[in-house]
Design a binder for these strands. Structure first.
Length: 425
RNA sequence: GAGCCUGUAGCUCAACGGUAGAGCACUUGACUGUGGAUCAAGGGGUUGUGGGUUCGAGACCCAUCAGGCUCCCCA
C-alpha cells in the first residue's frame, strides 16, 4: 500500500466505461470528417525537438513538451501538437498529393502542464485540415465539420457556440487606429486577456504595451461591436456560406477571439460550451496560410482546427450525452461444468462463434451459482449449460437470464434457438 | 512558478484530543446443477510518510510526498 505505484501525473487510465466515451468521441469525429470527404492520416508520436523549436518559442518547447534524450543521444519529444508533422509530410509529397487536400486525424498528444479540470498531460486530439484552398467557403466548411460533430453528439446551438473572428479584419481596424504592425501581436494578446482581467488592470496593461488612451478607448468600442464583421468581405462571405451549409445557428461573431497562436493569418474560431462548468474552449482553429512555406514547403494556404477529448468528454458527461455503458461484452455465456466435460463447453462455444455469435466461455470449471452470478453481473442475456445430464440426452440447457426461463434444445438446434431468443427482445 | 483544499478498509466517507467505525463491495453459508432479493457470519487498517506538542494524536504544530482545484500558460 505504501509502495503502491501510481499512474504518472497527468496521465489517464481508461477503464472500459471511459474507453466507451473515448470511442464515442472518436466515432463521431470520424463520421463528421468522412461526411465531408476527409481522409484519415497520422504522424509519428515521437518527433525530434527541432521540429517544434523551429516554429514554437524555445520557452514553450522547454517548459511544455515531454522531451528526453534517447539511447542514441538524440533529443526527442512526445508530440505536443500535430501541425508541424502535417506540414512536413505535405511538403515531402507536395508534388504527388492531390490538392485541395482534406485530412483528419485522432491520436494521443502530450504536454507537460499542470493538470486541472479539463486539462491533463496526456490527451487525445481530433485534427481536421484543409490544405490548398484560401476561400472563406473553405473556412466555413471546417466550421461545418465541427458543427456536424457537435450536432451528432447531441450538443445544441443553445448550449454550444462557435465564436469567429478574422485577423485580417482586426489588422484593418488596428491600421485605422494607427497601431503599427510590430505592435499588433501584443494587442492581440491584450485582447485575448481582456475577459480574464480586471477592467482597470486591463487598461493599465494596455497603456503599458504602448497604446495611447485614445487608442484604448476606440479598441474597447471595437471589442463590443457585434456587427463589426459586416465591414469584412471575408467574414460576410463566411457567414453566407455557413448559412448555406445549415450551420449558421451554431456560429457567432466575436471580436474578442484572437487565438494565442502566432501563425494564424485570417479566420480564427473557438468553440465553447455556454452552460456547462468548463469554461475552456472545446475546439479551436483558423487559417494559417504561411505555415507550410515557413517549414520549408511551397507556399500553400491552409485552414484547420483541433479538438481535445478532455473538455468535450466532461461536457458530454455533464450534459448527460455520454453513451450509456453496456457492461456486456457478449450476449452469451457458456458455462463450464467440470473437468470431465469442459471440452463440450469449448466445442459448443466454438460452434456458436463460427455461426457469427459473440460468446464468452467460462474459463474454468466452477460452481454453477458462481457462473450464473458472473453472467448476471455482466448483464449477459443467455447462459448455456452442457453438463452430464445434457450430454446424456443430447441437448443443451439455455437459460434466458432476462426472463429466467430455461429450455432444453437438441444439440443440433442450438444455434437456431439462440438466434431466435436473441432476436426476441 | 504562485495560492487554496484534501489524504482513514477495495470504493464513498464517519469518528469532541480519550478503545479506529459505517454503508457499499468482497468471501462463505442458508440454497451440494442455476443469477438478481433477503438473512447470517467472515476477511480485511503501521489513519500517505517523518518529526514534534501532549498522560494520551486519525484529529493540533512543522516538514515532506501524493492528489484535486485555481492563477499563470495554452501549440
Amino acid at each position: 500500500m505504501a509502495s503502491k505505484i501510481l499512474p504518472v501525473k497527468g496521465t489517464r487510465e481508461f477503464y472500459p466505461e471511459q474507453m466507451a466515451l473515448r470511442n464515442f468521441i472518436y466515432e463521431n469525429a470520424r463520421a463528421a470528417s468522412q461526411a465531408f470527404g476527409y481522409q484519415e492520416w497520422d504522424g509519428p508520436f515521437i518527433e525530434s525537438l527541432e521540429l517544434y523549436a523551429a516554429k514554437s518559442g524555445e520557452e514553450l518547447v522547454k517548459k511544455q513538451a515531454f522531451t528526453f534524450t534517447d539511447r542514441g543521444g538524440d533529443l526527442v519529444t512526445l508530440r505536443p501538437e500535430l501541425t508541424p508533422s502535417l506540414a512536413r509530410m505535405i511538403a515531402a509529397r507536395q508534388g504527388e498529393l492531390v490538392f485541395p487536400l482534406r485530412w483528419w486525424s485522432f491520436g494521443p498528444f502530450w504536454r507537460y502542464e499542470q493538470p486541472q479540470k479539463g486539462r491533463s498531460r496526456e490527451f487525445f486530439q481530433w485534427n481536421v485540415d484543409l490544405i490548398g484552398a484560401n476561400s472563406p467557403e473553405a473556412d466555413a466548411e471546417l466550421i461545418a465539420v465541427a458543427v456536424t460533430f457537435l450536432r451528432s453528439v447531441g450538443l445544441t446551438p443553445q448550449r454550444t457556440r462557435i465564436l469567429v473572428n478574422d485577423r485580417r479584419l482586426m489588422n484593418a481596424q488596428f491600421e485605422a487606429l494607427g497601431i503599427p504592425p510590430e505592435q499588433r501581436m501584443d494587442v492581440l494578446t491584450l485582447i485575448d486577456r481582456r475577459s480574464k482581467m480586471d477592467p482597470a488592470k486591463w487598461e493599465a496593461y494596455a497603456l503599458e504595451i504602448g497604446l495611447t488612451p485614445d487608442q484604448v478607448k476606440h479598441l474597447k468600442e471595437l471589442l463590443i461591436d457585434e456587427s463589426l464583421w459586416k465591414t469584412s468581405p471575408e467574414l460576410t462571405r463566411l457567414f453566407d456560406a455557413l448559412e448555406a451549409l445549415s450551420v449558421r445557428d451554431y456560429v457567432a461573431f466575436d471580436p474578442n477571439i484572437t487565438r494565442g497562436l502566432l501563425y494564424y493569418t485570417g479566420t480564427v474560431f473557438e468553440g465553447f460550451d455556454v452552460s456547462g462548468s468548463v469554461q475552456r474552449a472545446i475546439l479551436g482553429g483558423g487559417r494559417y496560410d504561411n505555415l507550410l512555406a515557413d517549414v520549408g514547403g511551397q507556399p500553400l494556404p491552409a485552414c484547420g482546427f483541433a479538438m481535445g477529448d478532455v473538455v468535450i468528454g466532461i461536457i458530454l458527461q455533464e450534459a448527460g450525452l455520454a453513451p450509456a455503458f453496456i457492461p456486456s461484452p457478449a450476449p452469451i455465456l457458456v458455462t463450464m461444468f467440470d473437468d470431465d466435460h469442459c471440452l463440450h463447453t469449448l466445442r459448443l462455444s466454438s460452434e456458436l462463434r463460427t455461426a457469427g455469435l459473440k460468446v464468452i466461455t467460462y474459463p474454468e470449471p466452477a460452481r454453477l451459482p458462481k457462473q450464473f452470478k458472473f453472467a448476471d453481473r455482466l448483464k449477459i442475456q443467455l447462459a448455456l449449460t452442457i453438463g452430464p445430464d445434457e450430454i446424456a440426452q443430447g441437448v443443451v440447457a439455455i437459460k434466458d437470464l432476462r426472463s429466467g426461463e430455461q429450455t432444453h434444445v437438441p444439440r443440433a438446434e442450438v444455434v437456431h434457438a439462440v438466434r431466435t431468443l436473441l432476436n426476441r427482445s
